[in-house]
Amino acid sequence: MKIDVKRGGGPPASFRSPSFQSLRPVQPIGRGLASTPQAGGPQARPFPAGVGALARNAIAANTRWNVTGLAPPADGRRWASGSSTGTGLFEARRLAAFQAGIIDEDGRPTVTTNESGEPVRSWPHDDTGYAITKKDLDVIGLTEGQVDLWRRFKAPLGMTEKDYEEFTSTLKDALAKDGLEVGEVDIRLQGSSAHFFSGRHKNFPTRETLSGPPEAKARLESWVGERPPSEWPARIPFDGKYKITGNPEDLSDYDVQLSSGAMIGRAKERWDKTSGQTRGHKEFINPKYNFADKRTVSEEFGALTRWAETWRERIGREVSVALFTGTGPPDTSGVGTGISTHFRPSDWIIKKAGEDRDA
């Protein structure tokens, strides 16, 4: 089966689970590194940093991506970020998808522009190149129309277009009520509602790793059917965990990322007035995630807090707000797991700082 690898293209033609052996590169790749230009041909896309040597060599030597001889990675899933020796079917699948232009260096669907100049994403893939199938959409409870709105940044998953318009307009109203210059605040969405799949810290369960009642295992089996694990998603898609566990606490949420020097300044002033007993051992800037203390932010910006509470009740999902400095979260892609929420062109941008209009 062939997969439509055109950037911004629709779903695979047959809309079935893609086999990574079916991927084709947009141009030939020589037997050396993929960054080596072909004689008389276009420059091939370079491999992303930290790929495994075995998968790199296998793909560079075989333009048909026939890499069935590779063993899966030891943990069954994880893309070996920062490793020079990582191997496996999922790593090979990611490299194939990256070379074909289906995902970018961060493992996200590529973003181009349509005839009207509006941004549009390619069909949803996880960071290993797995393409969402019709069966996946049926299980998750999404339609192709909802995917189309997501691809065109018109509505994140779980919202209608009207919901999203109200979500963003009332958020800006709340910031204004809190005495902020809204145009100077950078606002973005993170998480699976914005990116379709969770990051590589949230793997799609295997038969061995899934815990819970028999019903959960039955739901997983019903979802994946007779497909071999090498053709399963590597990451959890939007609402995927909930669809397996049946636990409402596993519903996907909305992660609102705010970046503002003015907001940080006000929150820091409140923090400095807080007693040491109240602070405990916490730091104002979380040392792991780099956002400002959430309790302090909630107390300082009351209208923002009430806005989040209102939308939690309205949509039945958690709405989480994280505040960062004006330059946004630092780039931590080369640290630890490589999970990073630093500014990227592929972000779901509600508005950039310095812009009064939506991005």
Score class of each variant (00 low, 15 high):
E115T: 14
G354Y: 05
G145W: 05
R64M: 11
W123P: 06
D356Q: 12
N57I: 15
R77L: 12
N247I: 11
R312G: 09
D272L: 05
P213R: 15
L175C: 02
T68C: 04
P119T: 06
V111N: 03
P12I: 12
Y130D: 02
L180G: 03
P25S: 13
A39H: 04
P72T: 11
A131T: 06
I285P: 02
G141Y: 07
G328L: 05
L323M: 11
D136G: 13
Y254W: 07
G276D: 12
L54G: 04
D178M: 11
P214E: 01
E221H: 10
N114C: 10
L142W: 06
T332R: 13
K202Q: 02
A53P: 01
G183C: 05
P237N: 02
R266D: 08
N114W: 08
F20V: 10
E300V: 15
V297T: 14
Y130I: 08
D173K: 00
S275H: 04
L23G: 06
Y130R: 00
R306I: 14
V120S: 04
P48H: 11
P233F: 13
W348E: 04
K288E: 13
R78V: 07
Q190L: 10
F284Y: 01
V139H: 02
R279D: 08
F47E: 06
P18Q: 08
G225F: 07
S211P: 00
Q38G: 08
D356E: 13
V185P: 10
G212N: 05
G50C: 00
G82H: 08
G191D: 14
G199Q: 10
I132H: 04
P42Q: 04
T143K: 08
E166W: 00
K177Q: 11
R344W: 03
L175H: 01
V51D: 10
P214M: 04
E269N: 12
A44I: 01
E221Y: 10
S222F: 05
D253M: 12
G338T: 04
L180T: 06
K172H: 09
S19Q: 03
F15K: 15
L89D: 15
T305N: 09
G32P: 00
A359D: 10
M1L: 09
S346M: 01
L304F: 13
N62E: 12
R64F: 03
F47G: 13
A61H: 10
D136Q: 05
A39K: 03
A131E: 10
K352M: 06
K288A: 14
A322I: 11
V182G: 03
S83V: 03
G8E: 07
F196P: 10
G199A: 12
E115R: 02
V335T: 05
T209L: 09
W223R: 09
E355S: 15
G86A: 15
G354S: 12
K177W: 00
R93H: 11
D356F: 07
T128Q: 00
A359W: 12
N66Q: 11
K6D: 10
P119C: 07
G107W: 08
E299N: 14
R78L: 12
Q99D: 10
P228S: 14
S259T: 06
G30E: 13
P72N: 11
H342S: 08
R312L: 11
P42T: 05
H281P: 00
G240D: 14
R56I: 00
T85P: 03
R235Q: 14
T113W: 05
A96E: 01
E118S: 14
T278N: 02
T327Q: 13
S346V: 07
S298P: 00
I103L: 06
G52S: 13
T332F: 01
S298L: 09
S116L: 14
V120R: 14
S169V: 05
